[in-house]
């Protein structure tokens, strides 16, 4: 038996080899660089905590932090709202809608497209003077003056939020539906008998039972959201204009490292981002496990 168990090491060895070289070592190396003034070439000199001190007082990092949250928050609210409304409609036993497979596919479609294609596409669709969107809206008489979507901080952030919603609500909808279909029909039948209305059924039965699923969506969405990069990078000139409103944390990291060659500082930014992700994930995890005990059951 002992002999056989030794095989365990063989099975996990390739994984750990690759993991050590390509995941752990870079993370450790980045940690080392965060204490240096490395510029991408030449020698790295240790500078102590200077980079972290700068990070704490860096208004642009703070700005990037809030931008990321704003963009993600609006998107998440919309995306979850849509997904829940759709799930409510499709799961309602009194309506019995047809065509769920079709709508699910159509709603999911935008999620499959390479995000850089999406960014490029919206970049030209949203163009101020000659974008198809403004032209269409003007033709329909909805607006009289073209809107410079990507030039106004608020509308630029909103545009990014909406694009993210467009990309992700179908995904959330599918996941929520999967959760809903796992809820026993008995609950709903009991509610029907008790004479609960739609909203009561939804808020008292569906939502509480869906909590683990909702938290799952929230965590994955948050981790993805904090790493928002492609859209702002490609929708703007790459530095997050207008007025720094699309400057996200990862875009800031990218620019510091690969544009301004401040590798050492960028490494500190990366660790700042890490700590932030860790804190928020911990909060959500706490919420998840804390609440789960009170729930009847949900696999």
């Amino acid at each position: 038996m002992k002999n056989i168990n030794r095989y365990g090491y063989f099975f996990i060895a390739p994984f750990w080899l690759v993991f050590l070289v390509f995941s752990i070592y870079p993370v450790a190396l980045t940690f080392y660089y965060s204490f240096t003034n490395y510029t991408g070439s030449g020698e790295a000199q240790l500078v102590g905590l200077a980079n972290y001190k700068r990070l704490l007082t860096d208004t642009y990092f703070v700005e990037a932090f809030f931008n990321t949250w704003k963009i993600w928050g609006v998107n998440f609210a919309l995306q979850m709202g849509l997904a829940l409304i759709l799930a409510m409609i499709f799961s309602d036993m009194r309506i019995k809608l047809k065509g769920i497979a079709f709508f699910r596919s159509i709603f999911y479609l935008p999620n499959l497209i390479t995000i850089s294609s999406v960014a490029l596409l919206f970049g030209i669709l949203l163009d101020w003077q000659h974008g198809s969107l403004n032209m269409m809206l003007m033709k329909l008489g909805i607006i009289s003056d073209p809107i410079n979507w990507l030039n106004e901080p608020t509308s630029a952030q909103l545009s990014v939020s909406l694009i993210l919603t467009w990309m992700w609500f179908g995904h959330s909808f599918i996941v929520v539906m999967a959760g809903v279909s796992g809820i026993s029909k008995d609950y709903y039948e009991a509610a029907l008998i008790d004479g609960a209305n739609r909203w009561q059924t939804f808020s008292k039965i569906t939502i509480p039972l869906l909590k683990p699923i909702l938290l799952y969506i929230m965590i994955t969405s948050l981790i993805g959201g904090l790493q928002l990069f492609d859209l702002p990078m490609l929708l703007t000139d790459g530095i997050g204009s207008p007025d720094g409103s699309l400057n996200t944390m990862v875009l800031y990291l990218y620019n510091q490292a690969f544009k301004y060659n401040n590798y050492g500082y960028a490494a500190a930014v990366a660790y700042g981002l890490f700590v932030i992700t860790l804190i928020f994930s911990a909060f959500i995890f706490k919420g998840m496990y804390g609440k789960e005990r009170k729930q009847p059951r949900q696999v």
Partner: peptide, 9 residues
């Protein structure tokens, strides 16, 4: 750990 953390390393 987010993917970007190790980017520079």
């Amino acid at each position: 750990v987010p993917g970007q953390l190790g980017l520079i390393g």
